[in-house]
Design a binder for these strands. Structure first.
Length: 110
DNA sequence: GCTATGACCAGCA
DNA sequence: GTGCTGGCCATAG
């Protein structure tokens, strides 16, 4: 808390995404649940759609779907950019999917 | 104010 | 086990 009123839902998503530490990933549902809307997972994805305009930058490459699949890789500068970033952080990616997903999955603390 | 969309999730055939 | 449909919340037009 101790946070001023953000622009809205979007800023909350950005803030949650920035909470993800290096070498870790998270899911849309987890972020949505953290901000108080476990059903707004879709909105989370859409929020990330404008994450490129957010500052500080949001590590959207650390945000994947429930299956650990790089669903939003298509929205990056180029599709393989997401995989590169993940592998750069020590996260193994195979066929657009994160290996040992549960091991690199970051859990938010309330 | 209503309709359409969105990088999802869960249930059902 | 795989594929698809519905629902869910919030923003933009």
């Amino acid at each position: 808390m101790a946070k001023k009123d953000n622009t809205g839902f979007f800023e909350k998503v950005y803030d949650a995404a920035r909470e993800i530490p290096y070498g870790k990933v998270s899911t849309y549902g987890a972020i949505a649940a953290k901000i108080g809307s476990p059903k707004a997972a879709r909105m989370v994805g859409w929020a990330m759609n404008g994450s490129h305009a957010a500052f500080p930058p949001v590590p959207a490459h650390r945000v994947v779907n429930r299956n650990g699949l790089l669903t939003g890789k298509n929205h990056f500068e180029y599709p393989e950019k997401m995989e590169e970033l993940l592998e750069e952080e020590g996260i193994m990616v195979r066929n657009n999917k994160i290996i040992d997903f549960k091991e690199v999955l970051y859990v938010f603390n309330d």
